[in-house]
Design a protein around this nucleic acid. Structure first.
Length: 529
DNA sequence: AAAAAAT
C-alpha cells in the first residue's frame, strides 16, 4: 500500500488530499504521480474508477504552483471526451487546488461563451475542456496555445469512438512541442497507439488491471422477459427495481427516446427517477447529476453517456433495461456499481429479441449471469393494437418505429413518442395515481403548434378511447370537417387518401387552418431545374 | 441498430 505522502507531492497538495480523507494511493496514482512529477510523459492505461483523475490532477497542481498565467495563455490543458467528465475533472481541481493560487476554467459546449471568455481574458492556469469548444474558442482568437506546458488527454479511446482524434491531433500540433503530456486510455486500439507514438516523448507506460470484468464485488443477474414489448419490459423493470430496493441505481437504455420513456414511466409509477442523455440541455444534465450525487435523486435513467467516466460514488444497483449494443458497454455499465470495495448488483433484462447482443455479452464476460426469477403477470403488459396500426396492417409491432420515419424533427418525435408510450402505460396498467389521464386530459399542456399536430396525427389513439371502449366499438368522434385544406402550390392536385384510409381522421390542420394558408398562394419564382 | 460533441 502506497501512502500519498510517499509520492513526492508538496505539503500544500498533501494537505488538500488529507482534507478529502484519502491516505492510500491507488495503483495508477502510486505509479503515475512520481513519473509526472519528474517531468516525463505518461501513457496510462486505466479505466474509470481506478483513480486516474487524481493521478494527473495532483502532480499538475504541484508543477504549476510556481508561475502565473498570462491572459489567454493557459499553462495546462486537460481534454476530456464528454462534458460531464470535463466537469468532473474541474471539481477535482477545485478540491485539490484550493490551497494554491491556481485558477482554472471549464470550457464545454452547451453553455454560453461569455463567462468562459471572461475567464480566458483574465488568464487561467488550467483549462479543462471538451475538444469542440476548446477549438471554437481558439478559432475565435480567444485563446493561445503557445504557452501550454502540460497537456492531459483523458479517455483517449472514447475520443476515438466519438470521432475526436483529428481534433486531438490538431491540439497536439497547436501546442508547443516541448511540453509534458499525460495520456490516458482504457484500451489501446491501433489508432491510439499511432497517436502516442507520434506525439509522446519516451513515455512511461503504466498499466493497471481492468476493474470491471474481474470485479468480484458485482453480482450479475439476468431477468428473462418473455416479450419484447416495451410495456412488458417496463413492467419487469418496475418489478425488479421495487424488489431490489436500490439505495441508488442507474437504469441504462440504448436509445435517448427510450431513456425519456422509461424515466417518465418510472416517475408516473411513483419512483424517484430522472433522465440523463445528450439531448437534454446542459444545465438539466448537470442538475440531475448533482441531485444524484447528493442522494436527492435515487434512480438515474441514462443513455451510455453515463456508462463511462462519470464519477458516481456508491451506486448500489445497475439495471440494464436494454442489452447494450456493444458488449464493452456492458462492462462499463456494470462498472458503475461494486466500486471501491463495495458490493453491487447488476441486472440485465433479456427479451427473445436480444439473443445476439446477449450472446456477445456472455462471450465477453465468460459466463452466463444467474437468472433471477420474478413473479410477474405479463397478460396486461402487451401493447393493444391501435386503430392506426391495424389500418397499416401491423398489429404486433409496438408502434414506435413508424413514428421514427415521419417527417417530424428528431427532438419532437422523441417527445411525442415518449408521451404516447407513457400515456398508454398509464391507461393499460392502471397505477394508483393518474388523475390527468383519467380526466381525459393530456398530462402536460403543450404549445399550440404541437397540440394541433397531435390531433391530426394521433387522434385515433386518444387515451379516452383506449380506456372506455374496445377499439372496434369506438363511437365515431364528431369532427368538424373532412375536407383537407387546399394545397397552396399551383399545379399540384390535392391527393385523396388511399382506399383503406380512415376517412374520419382529421388531416393536417383539421379545422384550425391558419389564416395565411387560406390566402392566395404567393407567386413563386420559376426554377428551371 | 446508438450515443457522444461546436453551432
Amino acid at each position: 500500500m502506497t501512502e500519498f505522502s510517499d509520492l513526492g507531492l508538496s505539503p500544500t497538495t498533501l494537505q488538500a488530499v488529507a482534507d478529502t480523507g484519502y491516505t492510500t494511493a491507488t495503483p495508477i496514482q502510486a505509479q503515475a504521480i512520481p513519473v509526472a512529477l519528474v517531468g516525463q510523459d505518461v501513457l496510462g492505461i486505466a479505466q474509470t474508477g481506478t483513480g486516474k483523475t487524481a493521478a494527473f490532477t495532483l502532480p499538475l497542481i504541484d508543477k504549476l504552483a510556481s508561475g502565473r498565467a498570462k491572459a489567454r495563455m493557459p499553462r495546462a490543458l486537460v481534454i476530456a471526451p464528454t462534458r460531464e467528465l470535463a466537469d468532473q475533472v474541474a471539481s477535482s481541481f477545485e478540491k485539490y487546488a484550493k490551497g494554491t493560487k491556481l485558477s482554472w476554467a471549464l470550457l464545454i459546449g452547451g453553455v454560453s461563451f461569455g463567462d468562459q471568455e471572461k475567464k480566458l481574458d483574465r488568464g487561467v492556469d488550467v483549462l479543462i475542456a471538451t475538444p469542440g469548444r476548446l477549438l471554437d474558442h481558439f478559432e475565435r482568437g480567444k485563446l493561445l496555445m503557445t504557452g501550454v506546458q502540460f497537456l492531459v488527454v483523458d479517455e483517449a479511446d472514447r475520443m476515438l469512438d466519438m470521432g475526436f482524434i483529428p481534433d486531438i491531433e490538431r491540439i497536439f500540433k497547436l501546442t508547443p512541442p516541448k511540453k509534458q503530456t499525460l495520456f490516458f486510455s482504457a484500451t489501446m486500439p491501433p489508432e491510439i497507439t499511432r497517436l502516442t507514438k507520434q506525439f509522446l516523448k519516451d513515455p512511461v507506460r503504466i498499466e493497471v488491471a481492468k476493474p470491471a470484468t474481474t470485479n468480484a464485488n458485482i453480482t450479475q443477474l439476468l431477468i428473462k422477459v418473455p416479450s419484447s414489448d416495451p410495456k412488458a419490459k417496463r413492467l419487469a423493470l418496475r418489478t425488479i427495481v421495487e424488489k431490489a430496493a436500490p439505495e441508488t441505481g442507474i437504469v441504462f437504455c440504448n436509445r435517448k427516446t427510450e431513456v425519456d420513456i422509461v424515466a417518465k414511466s418510472l416517475k408516473v409509477h411513483g419512483f424517484d427517477a430522472a433522465a440523463i442523455h445528450g439531448d437534454l440541455d446542459q444545465s438539466q444534465r448537470m442538475k440531475t447529476l448533482a441531485d444524484f450525487r447528493s442522494g436527492a435523486l435515487k434512480i438515474l435513467v441514462a443513455s451510455d453517456v453515463a456508462a463511462r467516466g462519470l464519477d458516481i460514488p456508491a451506486v448500489s444497483h445497475v439495471f440494464n433495461y436494454d442489452v447494450p449494443h456493444h458488449a464493452d458497454d456492458y462492462v462499463h455499465r456494470i462498472g458503475r456499481t461494486g466500486r471501491a470495495g463495495r458490493t453491487g448488483v447488476a441486472y440485465m433484462l433479456v427479451t427473445p429479441a436480444d439473443d445476439k447482443g446477449f450472446d456477445k455479452v456472455v462471450k465477453l464476460i465468460g459466463s452466463t449471469p444467474a437468472e433471477e426469477v420474478i413473479d410477474v403477470d405479463y397478460t396486461n403488459a402487451v401493447t393493444v393494437p391501435r386503430e392506426g396500426d391495424r389500418r397499416r396492417g401491423r398489429g404486433e409491432r409496438p408502434g414506435r418505429e413508424r413514428g421514427e420515419r415521419s417527417g417530424r424533427g428528431r427532438r419532437e418525435r422523441a417527445e411525442t413518442a415518449a408521451e404516447a408510450e407513457v400515456v398508454e402505460t398509464v391507461v393499460a396498467e392502471g397505477p394508483a395515481e393518474a388523475p390527468a389521464v383519467e380526466r381525459g386530459e393530456r398530462p402536460e399542456r403543450k404549445p399550440r403548434r404541437e397540440r394541433t399536430r397531435d390531433r391530426g396525427e394521433r387522434a385515433d389513439r386518444a387515451p379516452a378511447v383506449a380506456v372506455e371502449a374496445p377499439i372496434e366499438e369506438a363511437p365515431p368522434v364528431a369532427r368538424p370537417s373532412r375536407e383537407r385544406p387546399p394545397m397552396p402550390v399551383r399545379g399540384v392536385q390535392p391527393v385523396r387518401g388511399r382506399e383503406d384510409d380512415d376517412d374520419r381522421r382529421v388531416v393536417g390542420f383539421g379545422n384550425d387552418i391558419p389564416a395565411f394558408l387560406l390566402r392566395a398562394p404567393p407567386k413563386l419564382a420559376k426554377v428551371e431545374d
